[in-house]
Simulated assay, not measured.
Amino acid sequence: MIVRAVAAGDLAAWERLYAGYAAFYGVAQTEEMRARVWSWLMDPAHGTEGLVAEVDGVVVGIVHYRSFARPLSATIGGFLDDLFVGPEARGSGAAEALVEGVADVGRKRGWSLIRWITAEDNYRARGLYDRVAEKAKWVTYDIKL
């Protein structure tokens, strides 16, 4: 398994996986929405970046991430977004490899931590997350604008 930065040639595989991610969470996602996120990933000036997990030349998983300021600790952290592995590759270690890939980026950049959220009922993913990270004590709130 290879974990590497997302590249222009990954568009078709990325679209398939990102659409699967949206479907998993029951989010209506349009082609225009995916095109916008893809443009962010391809723009070095944008804060959103991505990695893919590849097995035998086939992209089987994706993850997006970005840095964020942590004023209280006066550090920069990394936020892991949108981790998804195709059903055909679940259990292959791709999800853990993608999490570790983001952690590697963070170590190289001097980030203080990697943070992410998941749905409370995403039990399969939480099994991995409970093994590789510490569950935060923070409760999340949203204001829809």
Rank of each mutant, 00 (worst) to 15 (best):
R4S: 10
G20M: 07
W14N: 01
L41G: 01
Q29G: 05
A53K: 05
A125S: 00
Y123H: 15
Y141F: 15
R126F: 04
A53Y: 03
E49R: 14
P44D: 02
E49T: 15
R115H: 03
G61V: 04
P87H: 11
R66K: 13
F79P: 02
D56H: 14
P87Y: 09
L17P: 11
E120W: 11
G101D: 00
V27E: 12
A13W: 00
R126N: 05
L145T: 08
V60S: 02
D43K: 00
D104Y: 13
R107C: 13
E120F: 04
K144L: 12
V59E: 05
M33W: 04
L113V: 15
S73N: 15
G47I: 09
R70P: 00
Y25T: 15
R124Q: 12
V55Q: 13
L17G: 01
A69D: 14
R124C: 06
D121K: 06
V99Y: 05
T118H: 00
V55R: 12
K135S: 03
K144H: 07
D142Y: 13
R16E: 04
A8Q: 06
R34G: 04
R90H: 06
F68Y: 15
A125H: 01
K144E: 12
S73T: 14
M33N: 03
V27G: 11
Y129T: 02
R16A: 08
M33S: 11
R34Y: 07
G26E: 06
A97V: 09
I117C: 10
D81P: 08
V59S: 03
I62T: 00
P44A: 03
R107A: 10
R36A: 06
E32F: 07
V63C: 03
G26A: 01
P71Y: 06
I2R: 08
V27D: 14
Y141S: 02
A89G: 09
L51K: 03
T48F: 07
L98W: 03
R70G: 07
A45Q: 13
G101T: 01
A19Q: 11
A94W: 00
A13S: 01
D10F: 07
A133F: 02
R16Q: 04
A103E: 09
G86N: 10
A103S: 12
G26W: 04
R34H: 09
P44L: 05
T75K: 15
F79G: 05
S67T: 14
P71E: 07
A69M: 11
D56E: 14
I2F: 15
G77A: 12
V52N: 02
Q29D: 05
